[in-house]
Design a protein around this nucleic acid. Structure first.
Lengths: 337, 337
DNA sequence: ACGATTGGCACAATCGATTGTTTACACAGT
DNA sequence: ACTGTGTAAACAATCGATTGTGCCAATCGT
């Protein structure tokens, strides 16, 4: 495209290597002021921009990090992306976001694509339908950090949330209000956070001597429509639940749609608590109390770990658990018994 | 990292150039089946992945496209990003999304960063506080397409919406319902779409013999808080407006917040129409009628134009206008006169 | 049987930047 | 005058893949 090192060197009447050293400001460098000036003048005159591709090739480093997430439309993942991006910028890295749309094939393609493009590290929220590509990264000792989701079978870097405990607490809140039939609507059941949340849900029921009822559990795809269907089914049960734990932002919209259609009033007719907070939760048809994730912290921590692992390959893996906040917006009330 | 062409060549007992040709499936290629087989076997054995950085350097082409948007948290821009990403994938390109957060400096940095990283083209929704970097791209004959926003002073590729007409129609809808005092709340007034929408707003007032009143106009930052403040001011006017045209998704939330706080009922007390539709609009405190943009079409069209311009440098620039849909959700009613 | 064709592959330059090693020269010390 | 030291900059290899050109042998045509 534009001017190259060579062009600058020619104009300044020096060797390209000299220009390079001046630009990179190599230590212990002995270059006369006169030469430096000529070089800087030439750079300005030619509007020289170093070719990062060439640099990357030579340095085997691209100053680029890949982020692979299942849904760029999700406020949760976008929050993480923003915070990660901010950290990257601080350190002079560029973030490449890849959206897999919860599709395993796309994720695998994204991993190899980004790897092949020479990113220095990866942050991945995996689809969790398969994991050989993850294993491959481990074998290659390629620096990466999993976020939100985690494979129990592999030791890797990971930044996850205390989903089990959060679900436990949320359901405890409902139980304390007198609810005994509590619905659970989530995305795909194989996702780590879903597994954990369901586990927390089961634990708290058991501890409070409430029976676990499979009819109240719906785990399907993380789409609005499926969540809507699930909610309708829940509400049409002979004895419907008096409260619902919702785990997912988009899923929340599906539930709201059903609530509107069934003309239920929250929290009078139905108490709900949703996982994953968004700025929007206040403006819904009925504001929703949520379990809020500290997206900034997730992004910051993930970058921190990744950055360390990019610098040296023999670090032990870190697994960090970030806790959540409960944001009460009065979408829960005492059960009508 | 992994194996290189050379390694594959050595294992297959051929010259690297031969491997390259086999891989790229060069036309009119004469390579014996035997050799091909040895090469493929070696590739598999070494798990060879071509180094895209090296390819890019040599080919002066990275199969990468940059997207620069002011806000990755905006459903509108994310919608465009997704559609663009889909198109890129179809053609074997990788999309790099850069978020400027409506910050001009960041945008300039992003442009030069991506350029320097060798993207083959750019799609930009500019901040519009300055434009020298845009001019620079024009001078360099670098392929790029503006979206949503446009500089009247430059001839460039652009995919924009018929904002003027859309605003005209939306306000006409309100006027037909008997509204005479119609507020206008928007983001930064220098943005092309804002200028256009205000123009449409003014035109329709004039054509209907209604007076333009500066007190009803609020253009500031595209934040929830500023929009909230503006709404409060509007509602506290001695004679407040009976309807509001809102231009922006986040801004809509700000207005909703004010509406909730002022305990207004939509559309009984106040009619509203918001620009930029989102799947969420149905689930707000009060559903909002919106002007919906065809984000898919914007992304598709932008890619199409960019793709053409990446192939040949002497094409005339295209400016495409995408029209909008009005989605009625009953947030407007007859004015109480 | 001998030059011409072509199939099958190797050679080497190249993309642009980086960096270990040399070179060229000035000057100081003896 | 000659060696030694240090400064300032040039030289050349390298990262990995691509591609125009060149080369050798086998086959073809007459």
């Amino acid at each position: 495209m534009g001017a190259t090192l060579k062009d600058v060197a020619a104009l300044a009447n020096v060797h390209p290597s000299t220009v390079s050293r001046v630009l990179r400001n190599v230590e212990n460098l002995k270059i006369s002021e006169d030469t430096k000036e000529r070089i800087f003048k030439a750079i300005k005159e030619l509007n020289y921009q170093p070719d990062q591709t060439a640099r990357s090739l030579r340095l085997k480093k691209s100053f680029t990090i890949g982020l692979i997430i299942p849904n760029v439309a999700s406020p949760y993942f976008i929050g993480i992306a923003r915070s990660l991006d901010a950290e990257c910028t601080k350190e002079g890295y560029t973030l490449i976001i890849s959206d897999t749309n919860e599709n395993q094939e796309k994720e695998i393609k994204a991993v190899y694509d980004l790897y092949s493009r020479g990113v220095d590290g990866l942050v991945i929220a995996p689809v969790q339908d398969s994991d050989e590509h993850i294993k491959d990264l481990i074998d290659k000792k390629f620096p990466f950090v999993l976020i939100d989701r985690y494979f129990e079978k592999y030791d890797t870097n990971a930044v996850i949330c205390n989903d089990k405990e959060s679900a436990y607490n949320a359901v405890k809140h409902l139980i304390d209000l007198g609810h005994k039939r509590i619905g659970f609507i989530s995305g795909r059941p194989n996702l780590y956070p879903v597994v954990e949340r369901l586990e927390g849900y089961k634990n708290v029921l058991e501890e409070n001597n409430l029976e676990f009822n499979q009819d109240l559990i719906f785990s399907s795809s993380p789409t609005l429509d499926d969540a809507y269907e699930a909610s309708i089914k829940l509400m049409e049960l002979p004895v419907p639940p008096t409260a619902i734990l919702i785990t997912g932002t988009i899923i929340t919209f599906g539930v709201l749609k059903a609530i509107i259609e069934k003309k239920k009033t929250v929290p009078k007719d139905l108490s709900i608590i949703a996982f994953t907070d968004t700025i929007l939760a206040s403006y819904f048809m009925s504001p929703v109390s949520t379990v809020s994730h500290k997206v900034d912290e997730i992004g910051t921590k993930a970058f921190e770990i990744l950055f360390e692992h990019m610098k040296s390959d023999d670090l032990p893996y870190s697994k960090v658990v970030i806790d959540t906040n409960f944001v009460d917006r009065n979408s829960t009330a005492k059960a009508n018994i």
